[in-house]
Design a protein around this nucleic acid. Structure first.
Lengths: 214, 214
DNA sequence: TGTACATCAGTGAACGCGCGTTCACTGATGTAC
DNA sequence: TGTACATCAGTGAACGCGCGTTCACTGATGTAC
């Protein structure tokens, strides 16, 4: 309905940057209804354009989904960076541990803030090689996974982890926060108020990271 | 095609136990193609029956999905029980810890053995109150979640956990194994051979449970 | 034991839905001369 | 600066698809007498 008002201002025949507009629309759709709501037709509708127009910019529905997922991943990376920016005090080891916890907490923050795009990000991540996503980066130029690996690598540099443990540790951390995010978003924790979830997340991540040390 | 051969034997007009047959078909469909493949029409097709017949036994597509999810949960419960049956040696504390690890490992076993039904189970679990599922029980009469709570409660009884920690501990454990199952099933671990995943799962669960103790 | 009838499981045709995708087209843009 | 034309972004109508769901029906079953 509101779209009609916007459309009353006659859009020029050429949109200008339809690709970006479709991705933006896709992000909105995912935010409102998750992966299932992210359709090509809905995105073109929201951009005020005919359905076929999408094919000038995306080869398929999957293609749009990946593009939206990449935006989601870069938002997630920024969410992690925000948590990491708070890490200032302590000695080297304490800071390194706090940085790893920040990866987990930023991951969970993002999932709680925007469960729909979290779902899209995971879909894209899990069906595409996650390393090849160029736009899926935060302000430091790293993807969420790379931020995790970076934090783990610091612990290796400080000699609290052995290099050959890195991968297992990274996967363990990812498992825990991913599982928590899912449970908190769609599972038995979904009724809890946000502050209780944040507290719970803190407990879980703290326990996890503490358990990694010898 | 093969169905035609089966249908050559004329099925009586009344099926006998169509409800069970549809659930069985649903489980097969989910095993082959996950939640997305679990449709009413496909299930009736597989049962060799017209599409409308399903509505004599299920009120909706969701209704069938829940029924399949309940079977999946009970299979998962049995998978956990299988792991727990292996726990025999050690003192009380050691056995209690091993029983908790067995919950996690059985959960992961099930997800790796049947990722499609794992997905269905989670859908059902996450959209329905998981406590109300009557058929979702294993041989001990408990749902997977109840098996988890049971194992945690034992640790409380042995005074290694405080009662008020139970819920947080249960959720932390669930988070980790759920996340691991997802990553191993559809995520970056999905290419790894089964034995490597089993080993990794063992590491993760061992680390997790060890980290819960004071 | 036999018949009449209510019950109800399964049929098959139909409905509307929204989707992804294609295609001949139209309208705007920008480049070559 | 002006015109011809190639380019290509966006149109709109159409396609087929499989889905969930409904409904008047038909055929089998079992119960009452």
């Amino acid at each position: 309905m509101l779209d009609l008002v916007q459309d009353a201002i006659p859009r020029p025949y050429h949109h200008g940057d339809l690709r970006a507009a479709l991705v933006r629309a896709g992000v909105e759709l995912a935010r409102e209804g998750g992966l299932a709501a992210l359709t090509l037709r809905a995105a073109t509708r929201r951009a005020g354009v005919s359905a076929g127009a999408a094919y000038r910019h995306f080869t398929s529905h999957e293609d749009l989904t990946f593009a939206v997922g990449a935006v989601a991943l870069s938002d997630m990376a920024r969410s992690i960076e925000r948590r990491q920016a708070e890490v200032v005090s302590g000695n080297d080891l304490e800071r390194a541990l706090a940085m790893l916890r920040a990866v987990g907490l930023g991951y969970i923050d993002y999932a709680l803030d925007d469960p729909g795009n979290f779902e899209v990000a995971m879909f894209g991540l899990f069906t595409l090689a996650h390393t090849s996503l160029e736009p899926a980066r935060g302000d430091r130029g790293l993807t969420p996974y790379e931020l995790l690996v970076d934090a783990v690598t610091h612990l290796v540099a400080l000699d609290v982890l052995k290099a050959e443990q890195s991968f297992t540790v990274a996967i363990t951390c990812w498992s825990t926060v991913h599982g928590f995010a899912t449970l908190a978003t769609r599972g038995p924790l979904r009724e809890l108020p946000r502050e209780a979830l944040d507290e719970q997340a803190d407990d879980v991540v703290r326990t996890l990271v503490a358990g990694l040390l010898p």
